[in-house]
Design a protein around this nucleic acid. Sequence first.
DNA 1: TATGATTTAATAGTAATACTATTATTTTTG
DNA 2: CAAAAATAATAGTATTACTATTAAATCATA
Lengths: 224, 224
Amino acid sequence: METIPRNIHLVINEKLFVKDPETTNLGKRILEHSILLIDEVGFEAFTFKKLGQIIGSNESSVYRYFENKHKLMLYLSSWYWSWVEYRMIFAVHNIEDPLDKLHRAIRVVTGDVLDDDRTIYINESVLNRIIIAEFTKTFLTKEVDEENKEGFFKVYKNVICKLSELMLDVNPEYPYVKSLASSIVEGALHQHYLKAHFQTITDFAEKDKDLTEFYIQSINKILL
Amino acid sequence: METIPRNIHLVINEKLFVKDPETTNLGKRILEHSILLIDEVGFEAFTFKKLGQIIGSNESSVYRYFENKHKLMLYLSSWYWSWVEYRMIFAVHNIEDPLDKLHRAIRVVTGDVLDDDRTIYINESVLNRIIIAEFTKTFLTKEVDEENKEGFFKVYKNVICKLSELMLDVNPEYPYVKSLASSIVEGALHQHYLKAHFQTITDFAEKDKDLTEFYIQSINKILL
DNA sequence: TATGATTTAATAGTAATACTATTATTTTTG
DNA sequence: CAAAAATAATAGTATTACTATTAAATCATA
């Protein structure tokens, strides 16, 4: 995959970090290994102490970059959705047919993720795995409304809005574009999770059945 | 609503509790007030200490019923899905037409929940709110696979399997019944949450648009 | 190269949480 | 009424998620 030119930087809400981790070596090591460690032990068991030990640095040094682990997770999530948005725009660019555009966007949002070598310190395929397992929990909290006001979920909402606009181009009469788009984005994460942990309630454990195909077929029937 | 006859007891996996809370007064008070307290402060801030204070009892007494708060949440979730399953079976019983049956089941799974007065110590409409906000988190953990083996999510999976069977009766050729069913069950919870916290990415903040209607329309187009 | 500024590391400490263990007291039951 | 069971009270532990302080290392530049 070659989607992000090296000179482009994904911009992240400044309230999510104390010090921009992309500006220093230690910061990049924090990003790199927090992704790997969260993937390994899960967000609940992930601590700054363990992370510090792994990167040969100190707990308190991690705190100079991120206020707490929740903010770090929100940072990683924003990075992820920003990257998805970028790839989505890239995928539909210069395409004429609205339905073709929508299909390409759906492919980006629901498809499997390969590592993008252009960012050495972020392993996108592992990041995708932790988004599948952990992202939903970032907004299922008592603090959602405040954090939403602070714009912590803006990039995620952007992806959904972009997708719903593409749907509207296919069928301007359809009344539920926003819910259809949010269902697909969240639903794809959920089906990926089921595939890994609850094979009895998903069809995508079977090799010949494909998630993206399911969504493309469904929206064709719903919108056309 | 009059769905559960007083003499019927929802059976819950015995590994979820130390002592069956439905057998004693204190147990019922624990169920009643844990639902209210989780709704009030959220699962993360919910502790057995606070619960003990509220029910005028002791932290350690709560531990005699539930090993920890996660198991308590799993207990409440099982109770909820068991109740949904019961209502679903009840709703389709004696109905002939497969499509009519499916529509009725979808209505149970996606519709708003009113309190069922037959169980005095469980407020179903509050329980529904905490399921919307907290249930997904119960399986997004590193322990899913073990807990799944223990049968902690059996009732939830039952609901989805029942729903997918009804879909198969409508269209035996459709290849994605399980994923369609799990998408609807999880998707409905998600859309309810969006309605409460992320109005920009759902259509159901608008009064004239209805979640159940959206799902019934969608499955009609997908299955027929 | 010296000086100051910034960054990072190390240490210690705190409040809260999620328990466990023990004993005393109350309630239930036969 | 006595024995058994349930509950309450108290205390204690390990871990977590931080904060504060100071020391050491690195860097930037006059």
